[in-house]
């Protein structure tokens, strides 16, 4: 049935979006159901753990430098942008508090996740897409090996675990970046800056940020796996899946972040 009117187009887009979100949800449900087998399975357990370690290295360890650099710069930029305004109001001393809260609750997890999307998400989509085109997924199924258990579970677990770890690192690098430029531009000593940051940032700020990072990590892992495994049409399909992964992931991360922030705000957390 062809879709012609604007209302029909809107409805069709809504249905497609809902279907897509549902499919990602179902994939995450399967991952949750199959993950305990990493521990309980009597066969293939070593292979599964090897696979998980490799994915954690690939997703997390190799992206440390990029994530660190980006979040350091974000912290530094924030200090340069906000510092002079606060100085005008005589509140320059509040800068570490503002940057600390912003990094721990919001920017550390979000920026880290966005960098990982480009770094790991796109490569996961391209890898699984190429496997789909080369009949490797079909070959796995023909050997009674579930592609979700064998390919998706280690990738989603790896992105989830490593996004949480990288969020902690991002938080720290953002604070270091802020301290660096605050010292140069506003004359706040690093010791003074760090002391005030630790006084301002509570456990709850850190934990909400890390919780969000875990959810972001699951999205960064599941979305490219879904798009990659459903590639059709050869090389162009792989390219399309890679592009979609980056675009959809960033949109999903920002929307989910907004949702979390709204919920935390309503709950006064």
């Amino acid at each position: 049935m062809s879709v012609t009117t604007p209302v029909e187009k809107l409805g069709s887009a809504g249905l497609k979006t809902t279907g897509f979100i549902g499919a990602i949800g179902l994939l995450l449900r399967d991952v949750a159901a199959l993950s305990p087998r990493m521990v309980t399975a009597t066969r293939g357990r070593r292979l599964a753990w090897d696979n998980l370690w490799f994915q954690m290295y690939r997703v997390g360890v190799r992206s440390i430098g990029v994530v660190g650099l980006v979040t350091f710069c974000i912290g530094a930029i924030l200090a340069l942008q906000i510092g002079p305004i606060l100085e005008d109001y005589g509140a320059a001393a509040q800068l570490p508090t503002i940057i600390g809260i912003a990094m721990f609750r919001e920017l550390g997890p979000l920026i880290g996740a966005i960098v990982l999307t480009g770094f790991a998400g796109a490569s996961i989509a391209a890898e699984l897409g190429t496997m789909a085109v080369a009949e490797e997924l079909k070959a796995l199924r023909s050997h009674a090996i579930s592609p979700i258990r064998f390919l998706v579970v280690p990738r989603v677990l790896a992105t989830t675990i490593m996004t949480v770890c990288l969020a902690t690192f991002s938080d720290a690098m953002g604070v270091v970046g802020g301290a660096f430029t605050s010292n140069l531009a506003l004359g706040i000593t690093p010791t003074q800056y760090l002391r005030q940051t630790f006084e301002a940032v509570g456990h709850f700020d850190l934990l909400t940020g890390l919780f969000k990072a875990g959810v972001f990590g699951a999205i960064i892992g599941a979305l490219p796996c879904y798009l990659g495994m459903n590639v059709r049409g050869g090389a162009s399909g792989v390219g399309a899946a890679t592009t979609k992964t980056v675009v959809y992931s960033i949109v999903a991360l920002v929307c989910v972040d907004l949702l979390f922030t709204f919920v935390f705000y309503m709950l006064e957390l």
Binding site: M131, A134, K138, R141, A144
Partner: peptide, 18 residues
Amino acid sequence: DDYRKSIGVLFQSGALFQ
């Protein structure tokens, strides 16, 4: 899955895990 373990399939491309 039990049935799949009892058969073998050779795919057109070989479908080896790269």
